[in-house]
């Protein structure tokens, strides 16, 4: 019986959310406020069970047990700095919360420099010059196309050059401090927009069906999981 009640409640919530598409209404408001509360409550539980206990309390107890003074001191300082966040409750001392923020932002920034250069910049440029050990500007493939013109040899011949040109023009599009009448900027602008819009469109289209199927999933829940439960109970 419990399962049926809970499932029915879930169906009610699902329909309440969908009702928003027609108009804002009390059912939606109810579901929304319920969700807001539940999500924060869940966050509290997760923080306690998955962060505080395993990553603060246990290591602290562990390092005290094993007499690792340095490590326990380090954790205690961390907790103390974390507590400074709570100063936000006071108007007078809220600036104390800047300490944890400075640490998080500083460390995060410093930590991001090398990986972002490596993974997002150098590696990407590398694969714009060679792919699978082969040069993207491959004259052999272009010659092959003229010898034997076909769709697949055209694809092979243009693949590398088109890719390289695309990356370069898009990169140039995001120069900010050069004037627009600079010929390099001027003539690459339209091709760059062309590449980007085709790319964005593709990403849009690619996701389209996945999003539609989310709705289908919800309907499935109501029609193929909840409804049979009710039917069984009624019959």
């Amino acid at each position: 019986m419990g399962t049926i009640l809970w499932s029915t409640f879930a169906v009610f919530l699902t329909l309440s959310i969908f009702s928003f598409l027609i108009k804002d209404n009390p059912f939606y408001k109810f579901a929304e406020h319920l969700f807001a509360g539940i999500s924060v409550g869940y966050l509290v539980v997760i923080t306690f069970t998955q962060i505080f206990i395993p990553r603060v309390w246990k290591p602290l107890m562990n390092s005290i047990d094993t007499g690792n003074i340095l490590r326990s001191a380090f954790l205690i300082i961390g907790v103390f700095i974390g507590l400074l966040y709570l100063s936000r409750a006071s108007n007078k001392y809220s600036w104390l919360s800047r300490y944890p923020i400075s640490i998080v932002v500083g460390f995060g920034s410093g930590f991001a420099i090398a990986p972002s250069l490596n993974a997002r910049v150098l590696k990407q440029l590398h694969s714009t010059v060679v792919e699978d050990g082969q040069s993207l500007l491959n004259i052999q493939k272009i010659i092959a196309f003229f010898r034997d013109p076909s769709f697949s040899s055209l694809y092979n011949a243009t693949y590398g050059p088109l890719l390289v040109i695309g990356v370069l023009v898009v990169l140039i599009y995001f120069f900010f401090s050069f004037k627009n009448d600079n010929p390099v900027i001027k003539y690459t602008r339209t091709p760059a927009l062309l590449y980007m819009m085709v790319g964005f469109g593709a990403a849009f289209g690619y996701t389209f069906m996945a999003r539609i199927s989310l709705f289908v999933d919800r309907m499935n829940f109501i029609l193929n999981r909840w409804w049979p439960l009710i039917q069984n109970k009624l019959m």
Binding site: S116, L117, A119, R120, V121, Q124, L125, S127, T128, L162, L163, V164, I165, G166, V167, L168, V169, V170, L171, Y173, F174, A192, L194, Y195, M196, V198, G199, F200, A202, A203
Partner: peptide, 14 residues
């Protein structure tokens, strides 16, 4: 085109 555009964007974002 998609790979080219996304790669150009990614490099800029990096």
């Amino acid at each position: 085109p998609t790979v080219a555009a996304m790669r150009g964007l990614l490099i800029g974002i990096g």
